[in-house]
Amino acid sequence: MKEILDDLISTKGVLGCYIVDKEGSIVDFKGDENIDENLISALVAEISNEIANQMNIPGNFSISALAGNGSIFMIAKKDFILTLLSTSDVDTGEVRLKLRRGAKLIAELL
């Protein structure tokens, strides 16, 4: 799992990557120490639950949220959510590809 996170964090512009369970607890993470991992895990789980409840989609979806100074990418699987925080100059295509690959590997591990 560390290797997957190492691969993600090595991408230019990536500030942190987090594996969060559906209850909002951190499974593993790697990233900037200034980012509160507990806060991000709680928020990510909340968004995921919102989608699950409002749209009736329990898992297997992804979100790319692009803001003025950075982005949040999320891939939700049945048992976990893989999330990544980045600056705005990140290569979104590369990140999304790596996230997909990472989420697939994590699903096999868990």
């Binding site: 989609i57 979100i63 100074n69």
Partner: peptide, 14 residues
């Protein structure tokens, strides 16, 4: 997370 105003979101759903 001080990322500025949200401009775009892509949801990839089943």
């Amino acid at each position: 997370f001080d990322l500025g105003d949200l401009e775009e979101v892509i949801f990839e759903l089943p």
